[in-house]
C-alpha cells in the first residue's frame, strides 16, 4: 500500500449560473480591481492508501461521483500525488 493524496476539484458546469462568484466579482470590482470574469470551485484533498496510483484515482473518482460532486450541475477532475 502506498500513501497518496487525491485532489478532487469540483466546478459548476459551463453555463450554470454562479451567483456567489458573481457577487464576489462585484466585490472585487468595488475594491478597484479590474477583471473580466471569476469562477469558483471546491477543492477536496483526500489522503488515502491504495495499491497503486490507478486504484487511488478510481476511489477518488468514485467519491466524486457519489458525493463530492452533483452530476446535474458539476464537472470534476481528480489529480493523485504520492504523499
Amino acid at each position: 500500500m502506498t500513501a497518496y493524496t487525491a485532489t478532487v476539484t469540483v466546478r459548476l458546469k459551463h453555463g450554470v449560473l454562479d451567483p456567489e462568484a458573481e457577487t464576489t466579482k462585484q466585490a472585487l470590482e468595488r475594491l478597484g480591481f479590474e477583471l473580466e470574469a471569476l469562477r469558483s470551485a471546491d477543492r477536496f484533498e483526500v489522503d488515502l492508501e491504495a495499491d497503486s496510483i490507478a486504484a487511488a484515482r478510481e476511489r477518488a473518482e468514485d467519491m466524486a461521483e457519489r458525493l463530492l460532486a452533483n452530476p446535474t450541475i458539476h464537472d470534476y477532475d481528480v489529480e493523485v500525488d504520492d504523499r
Binding site: L17, D18, P19, E20, T23, N70, T72
Partner: peptide, 17 residues
C-alpha cells in the same frame, strides 16, 4: 429529494445569492 435522485434536477443558490 433531488440529491437522492428521487426527482430530477438540483436546487442550488438563488440567482440573487
Amino acid at each position: 429529494g433531488c440529491e437522492t435522485g428521487l426527482t430530477d434536477g438540483a436546487f442550488t443558490t438563488n440567482e440573487s445569492a
